[in-house]
Design a protein around this nucleic acid. Structure first.
Lengths: 141, 141
DNA sequence: CCTTCCCCTTACGTGAACGTCAATCAAATT
DNA sequence: AATTTGATTGACGTTCACGTAAGGGGAAGG
């Protein structure tokens, strides 16, 4: 479980609003910013999704940890389980040069993309149906 | 819980591939078609999401039930809980003319639509990031 | 010094969404 | 007539994603 120095750091891919004003965050910082509980963050850590440093026993979250968290939460919002999210994160961390590994990673990524595009279609269908119903409600006045 | 004769029947809104060849379905028909277990369908019934007729004790699913099931499963795929899905289904069933009710329903629908569009944005972001990663993998050969 | 925060860990509890027997029944097949 | 097939209803088990005490450490303020 290579939690340190990912080959393709997430913040390079997920340039969510940078915050150069600070360069580390406490657990309650991130909890406030992303509206999650400390319990949740510690749970994600237990599950191997984040690995913040420690000053003594206290967790210190870097910008990369913050970007990783953003990724995790968005993954959740689009319906992935934590296990699936970890799997996807791990994909980013395998850039070790082994080309068979790379091939495997690539295929999994393409699978994911297709899955997400199916979801988009589902969502679009859902939206248009709701929209039609809304129109029907409005027209029946 | 008005399970019968919805004001705005779902099959009018969800014209999933019609099947005029049959006009009722058994539980295992639908299980096979939608890849769910009987247990799941009975659970949905316990939760008030579907209400098929009975021939004796055996469940008989109509086209409307089938369309309703398709709606439920798609709702699940886009991340809604069964409780939320039931809530949405109930919205379709309140076309009783009370205009305050209608107003409420309309607002909830618009909320749902916005929520779904946010999800679409999340998915798009997810896709572009994965795509960038894929490109990066491909280019590093 | 004592209290107030904020952090930590360990551990058990919980709600959602089913899975998994177990026992039963009715219709269809051999 | 006996068996197989597919349906039913409980009732209990399970996994996921945390919630909720319960107990404790360390630093800052009155």
């Amino acid at each position: 479980m290579p939690m340190n120095a990912p080959a393709f750091p997430l913040e390079a891919l997920a340039p969510i609003d940078q915050r150069p004003d600070r360069d580390s965050f406490t657990i309650s910082d991130l909890c406030a910013e992303f509206s999650v509980t400390p319990r949740a963050l510690r749970f994600y850590e237990d599950e191997g999704l984040i690995g913040p440093e420690r000053r003594g026993t206290t967790r210190i979250y870097s910008h990369r940890d913050r970007a990783r968290l953003a990724w995790i939460l968005r993954g959740k919002r689009v319906g992935f389980s934590l296990a699936e999210i970890r799997e996807m994160i791990d994909l980013y961390d395998v850039g070790d040069g082994r080309s068979t590994q790379k091939q495997f990673t690539l295929e999994r990524c393409l699978e994911r993309i297709e899955l997400l595009e199916n979801q988009k279609r589902d969502i679009d269908a859902h939206i248009t149906e709701l929209q039609q119903f809304v129109d029907l409600l409005k027209s029946s006045d």
